[in-house]
Each structure stands twice: as C-alpha cells, then as structure tokens.
Write a protein that binds this DNA or RNA. Structure first.
Lengths: 339, 339
DNA sequence: TTGAAAGCGGTACCAC
DNA sequence: GTGGTACCGCTTTCAA
C-alpha cells in the first residue's frame, strides 16, 4: 500500500513532491488553521501543539506556497526595478544596494532590463501588474512613466527627478561638476573641454551646471561635447582632440570616455598630466587600470541603491518619508592624470 | 452617483484599482468561465460573446492575476538564475542572453546574485521553491547543488559540468587556451607565464589544459599563477614580474588581469609587444581601452546564456534535449599587444 | 456554446 | 487554544 502511495506521489509534478498545509495538518493531527497560526506566528498556539506542528513541518520539508499566500494577502512582497542597461557599473552597483536592503526587509526583486526598448518595458509593466508588485524603483528614462504612475503603487526614481511628488535618490552631480572644475582650474588648465554624457539626462545637465558655474565665476568657459557614457563614438573624440591641439584640461562624464581620451592623447604624443590633465567620472576599475591612473569623481552607487530601497520600504509600509529627495555626496579621487 | 463610485474605487487598495475576472464577467453579462475561455483562447466561445468579453476587458483594463493562475496551474512560467557576481561582464552578458530567450518563451526571470554567500543562496533557494519556479540555470559554484537537485526541476549549468545527467553550456575553454598558446608561441615567446583565474574552476582548468597541451607538444612549459578574475591581488602580479624579468609572453584568464599586467610592465619600462607579448580573455571593453589595445580570447557570452535558456525551455516543455552538453566556440581577437 | 461549482493552498474570522 | 469555513482570483470539468 505504502508503495502505491509512493508511486502516486512520484508521478505528481515530476516527482518534485511538495507538501502542502493540509498534509502538515494531518501529520500533526491538527487543523490547517493551527498550522497557519504556527507558520505565521500569529494567534494563540499551545506550546505542545506548536512543537508537534513544527516537527511535522520539518519532516515534510514544508514550505508555504507563496502564490496562495499572496492571492489572499494582496501584497506580493516583491518590488520591481527598471534599468536601461546592465552593462554599466553604475546600474549593477545600484542594484546590489537595492537588493541588499530589499533582502533585509523580506522583499524579492523583479529586475527589468529595458535596454531602452519600449516594447520590453511595456511587457514588464504588465508582468509587474500581474505579480502585484508592492513598489517600483525606476532608473530608466521610461517612456512609460505615465503608465507606471497609474499603477498607483509607491515609486522611487534613481538619478532623475520626475516631479516633486515622486521621491528620488540622486547623486550630487552639481557638486561633482564643481569639484572637477575646481581641481582642473586650480591646477592651471585654461583650455578646457567637457566630454559629457547625453545632455538630455538630468544628471548630465547637473554636472555641466556645477562645472560651468565654477568656470564662469572665474570668467572662463569651455566646449561641451555629447557622448554615450559606455559606448562613445571614438571618432568624435579623436576629431575633437585633433582639431583642438591646445586643449590642456578634460572633464569626462565617465571613466570610459576618459580612457578613450587618454588613448587618443597618447596617440597624439601628448603627455598626461604634463600636457593635458584629465578627470573621469564613476571611479570604476578602469580608473585604476589606465596608465597613468585616472583622477575621477566617485559616486556612491551602492548607497544610491540602498537609500532608494529604504525610501521605498518606508513608503510601502508607513506611507511616510523623512526625506523625499535624497542627494548622495560624491568625492574626488586624485590619481595620476591630474597634477 | 458616478462620483460616489469613483470615491469608493479610490479607497480600494490605495486607489490602485484592479479589475478581476468577476467584474469583467458582470460587465460582459457572461459567466467567469466564459471570460476564462476568452483570455486563455481555449474551448468554444461564440464570436459575438468573445467580442463582448474583449471589450469589457479593454474597458476595465483587466489583467489576469498571475498568483491565482499559478496557484491552480502549478507552473509559474518563471525560471531562476543563480550567479556568483554581477560585477563581471561575463555574467551580465550571459544574463542578457538568458533573458532574451526567456522573454520570447514567456518566462519571467528571478535573478539570484549569491555573492558567494551561502546564506543568501539558501534564502533564494527557498524563494525559488515558494514561487514554484519551472527551471533553474546555475552559474555559480553552488554549495547547495545537492539541494537544488532535490527540487526535481529542470536544471542547466553554465560554465561548469556537475554530472553527465545535468545539461550544461560551456565555453570552449580548452580551445581558448590552445589558441592563445598557438599565437604566443608562434610569435616566438619562450618564457611564458599563465596568470590564471582560480584553478578550482573547471573553466580555468580547461584553459590551462589547452594552453599546456600546446606548449608541451613543443617540449615547453610555463609558470602558473592563480588570481581572481576581476579583483586580482596586484602585488602578486608585480612581484612575479619583478622577479622574472625575462618573461616575454603572458596569457591571462581575464582582460582585467591582463590590464594590470600591462600597467606593471609599463612601470618596469617594458615595451608591449616588443619586449613582452600579452593575451587577455573575454574581449571586454577594457581590451579596446588599454594602450596598446589588447589581443584577447573572445567568449560568446550572450550565446552561452541564450543556449542555456534554449536547453532549459526544451527540458521544461518537452523533457528532451538534442545536445545535452553544449560547447560554445571562442575566437582569438588580434590587437596590438601581440606581434 | 455556456454556466455552476469544485478545487488550487493559504488566511483569518468566528464559534466553541 | 483550536477547528470549521468563507473567501482570494482563476481554471477546468461536467451538465445543461
């Protein structure tokens, strides 16, 4: 008889037999209500009974089915993250920060790498709804923002401010620009170019603002060139440097751009930092691998993520927030590419 | 009256009003069974009725609740991925490959970044069970392998082979090692060092095997030094290069290691590729940013991911597999760090 | 071609 | 303290 039952069990669900609350109840000789109380640590349960149930749970390797739970509770203990890329240290460090805190609060994370593809983003939006996510962290220039807002769930944005109402966490880009400007100017550079990221981005605008403000306070100005952070068009960099031989100071919005610049400058026979001084952004591994090492602005990416998740958790559970718009400080890391 | 209804709706679930199948049924004047048939495109539905239901769905912006569905169906249309890190181009490119194919097949992806932390991995394992994942792709040296196998769900491993039974997708590391050896030897190097990754990893062993095989076929041998792929102990590299001044050929198991080597060699006044030739691994952005550019072995990371997901899907849906152990080819990208 | 009803695996209220 | 039971939202027989 036992054999038959075993065979039946074996046939169920590819033999991946998963006990349910009913079986635990039967094994412990109690009702499912009692088992529920035990696993949720809620309501009165006799100490004896609890032990009985717990050992049954152990014997059966019982793990509650989250679908059934969420179906009733209406909360999924899941949050969504939307990022435009994964190939950027910024995002995966941020994700680590988010995930760590989410983990601590018992939240699962659904990651949406939109790849700047609207269709993908729409599909993920649907998934988010289907899975009843409890909150959302947006790190992309979503074209679907309006629809995300319609979800009527707590949202926190990263590296952008959508409105005064939507909480955000953003790096102190203005300060980053200012620190770079101060360093490069105080070191005597006069002919300066700013190789920016896409100037449609708030972060880029803020950096430029901080940078230019310091320059103009001294009656100076600089050229500005838009590039992609991670995959810049190198010919633009080469052309610019070729046609502007007297450039002696460069501020780049990413270490990648800065590395390309150094590559080009070396080709042109320029000495760094002798002829040209250069400052990058992000303090990625690249900054330590170039020759000479790169002076750069360091963003606390991990903290951006963890702060965002902290905000989101607070919104979900308490619906209040101490600081609606958090600004994370940056630091200048001095290495060999500046004097 | 309409106002009152609006207010009521507003109060429900934080105003994030989500229609359910019952409301659709009521609006369309049919039973929920019929609505179910329509949304699943299953069973007989009169064309007229279908239109009625569809317009109701549209009006109410109805999206089926996935928890309820999965609760009944027992499949979640979700797969899990376990990776040890995110800070490695290898993994996020692989993840992109997995995700793209998963997306095509209608699977969601739960990402577990174990950070080589057993506790995190255990917790994720629990989540996987709770969420009834349909399959699992393992890219980590999981200490929990045994328990993953107990899940009795389809598993595919990436970059490692656990047993003959568990399908795997792995880069042709032996060939990668061989190609590197061939290039470096044919170019005349005689004193060679192999800066490996951790030699506990199968991939590293295979590369060494391919590399050494070619060397020994010519009666040659080389030193081998273990390092971390992404965050190698630079003092080990510096020490080695300092104490072995006659090294003229270096094979590194990552572009990062290779970049550090170039950095050190430059410090020592060595010319690349004049005095020392060097080959990296992975063909990351680094290889194009170093001066000189880095010759490297290119792995088709995206394809590793997409093939793994293809295998998994086949296992889940058809339980059969054409090729159990897939080997993805590699190519040598020649740049400036070799003659 | 349609609808009633029995689950799926839990939670929580209400009796006892 | 405990158990019975009505849901949660959806799928799927089974009758009509």
């Amino acid at each position: 008889m036992k054999l038959i039952i075993d065979i039946i069990k074996l046939c169920m669900k590819g033999s991946g037999f998963m006990a349910n609350i009913k079986e635990v109840a039967k094994k412990a000789n109690v009702s499912i209500a009692t088992v529920s109380r035990v696993i949720n640590n809620k309501g009165y349960v006799n100490e004896e009974t609890r032990k009985l149930v717990e050992s049954a749970i152990n014997d059966l390797q019982y793990i509650p089915n989250e679908f059934a739970r969420s179906l009733y509770r209406k909360v999924s203990k899941t949050i969504g993250i939307i990022v435009p890329h994964l190939n950027n240290p910024f995002y995966y460090r941020v994700i680590e920060g988010i995930e760590d805190i989410a983990f601590d609060f018992g939240y699962k994370v659904m990651l949406c790498n939109s790849r700047e593809n609207i269709e993908r983003e729409k599909e993920y939006l649907k998934q988010f709804i289907k899975y009843n996510i409890d909150g959302l962290i947006i790190g992309s220039n979503s074209n679907e923002i309006a629809r995300y807002l319609e979800l009527n769930i707590p949202i926190v944005t990263i590296d952008r401010v959508i409105s005064d109402e939507i909480p955000s966490v953003i790096s102190d880009n203005t300060c980053g620009g200012k620190k770079a400007a101060k360093k490069i100017i105080d070191n005597g550079c006069m002919n300066i170019v700013h190789f920016r990221g896409p100037s449609t981005l708030l972060t880029v605008q803020q950096r430029a603002e901080g940078f230019n403000e310091y320059l103009s306070s001294l009656g100076l100005a600089c050229d500005e060139v838009d590039l992609d952070f991670i995959d810049p068009d190198t010919s633009i960099i080469a052309d610019y440097l070729n046609t502007h031989p007297n450039i002696d100071g460069i501020f780049c919005d990413s270490d990648t751009i800065a590395s390309y610049c150094m590559h080009e400058l070396t080709k042109l026979g320029k000495k760094i930092p002798g002829d040209v001084q250069i400052i990058g952004y992000d303090n990625t591994i690249l900054a330590q691998l170039t020759t000479p090492n790169l002076t750069t602005i360091s963003q606390r990416m991990y903290n951006i993520g963890s702060e965002a998740m902290a905000s989101l958790e607070s919104l979900i559970s308490k619906s209040i927030l101490d600081t609606k718009h958090k600004v994370i400080p940056v630091t200048l890391i001095e290495r060999e590419s500046t004097k």
